[in-house]
């Protein structure tokens, strides 16, 4: 009886910080969504109030007046193209490193791995001029390619570990049937790595969707900007226009796709991160 009571109190004591932190995480997000439906008057009256009627107009203002429509599409573009390009370049290299024996394979792997530890800030200045000379500044294709390249090392790191668990017999059988190595890569390895490819692609696309600084430097006109840059500009403008409702609506619009992805793939993301950690 005594120990049961003790357990109950421990249960309560542990839950207090857990619940408090949940509130601390969730409240600003809920506040953001509620703010998106408030009129400016309501926002100024009290940050804690609930809107009397839903101001959908905030979303319309953000979407059309503040360029969010265009930048949403641009973000979608760089996210999808970047994720695809990254796979196109990372899968063959991962396969070669993991399954084809060649001199320097470990060195190459470690070069990619080490580059994940190196700050890229220094590289951005020359990159800016490379793009300038190639006439690729303010170009969403170029930005997608650069995004893809920045995530190649990480993708190789994850994909090799997934490919390592594919039984070699499958490749052998295909080879005996006369399939070329290109065929093995495309028709055997790639489909069997689907789990790894999906995991990597989720991580990469979330990174690309959220990326801000390279977009700020490499994209220059309103028509090409991605969501991060647009939101930042909108925030700076709102200091003068006080159009907070539209700002909250804009923030909500840029978070909603991430929430959808998270809702669908939550289990996979959690599993990938906890298991990846224990492999260490």
């Amino acid at each position: 009886m005594n120990s049961a009571l003790g357990k109950f109190f421990i249960g309560v004591a542990v839950r207090i910080p857990l619940i408090l932190w949940s509130l601390f995480v969730l409240y600003p997000l809920i506040w953001m969504f509620i703010g998106a439906f408030k009129s400016n008057g309501e926002i100024f009256a009290s940050p804690w109030s609930i809107p009397e009627s839903l101001h959908w107009s905030n979303f319309a203002t953000a979407w059309t007046k503040y360029n969010i429509q265009t930048s949403f599409m641009n973000s979608l573009f760089v996210t999808l193209v970047g994720t695809l390009l990254c796979l196109v370049f990372a899968i063959p290299t991962s396969y070669a490193i993991e399954r084809v024996k060649f001199r320097g394979s470990a060195v190459l792997f470690n070069v990619y791995l080490a580059s994940m530890m190196i700050p890229m800030v220094l590289g951005w200045i020359p990159l800016f001029f490379i793009l300038l000379h190639l006439n690729m500044l303010n170009n969403v294709w170029a930005l997608s390619l650069i995004y893809a390249v920045t995530q190649i090392p990480f993708s190789i790191f994850i994909l090799t570990s997934f490919m390592g668990s594919i039984p070699k017999e499958l490749e052998e059988a295909a080879a005996i049937d006369g399939m070329s190595q290109y065929g093995v890569l495309l028709k055997i390895i790639t489909p069997l790595t689907a789990n790894g490819i999906i995991t990597v692609s989720i991580m990469n696309s979330v990174t690309f969707w959220n990326e801000y600084f390279m977009a700020l430097i490499f994209l220059q006109t309103k028509e090409k900007q991605t969501l991060g840059v647009t939101m930042d500009l909108m925030n700076q403008e709102a200091q003068y226009t006080n159009d907070w409702g539209a700002l909250f609506a804009g923030l909500s619009i840029s978070v909603i796709p991430v929430i959808i992805i998270y809702a669908i793939f939550q289990r996979r993301i959690m599993k990938g991160l906890t298991e990846g950690a224990s492999k260490g």
Binding site: N210, Y212, G228, S254, V255, V258, I259, I261
Partner: peptide, 12 residues
């Protein structure tokens, strides 16, 4: 819940 802010953009 605790993990969600990790996948939000730093800008947001």
């Amino acid at each position: 819940v605790f993990f969600f802010p990790n996948i939000m953009s730093v800008v947001v």
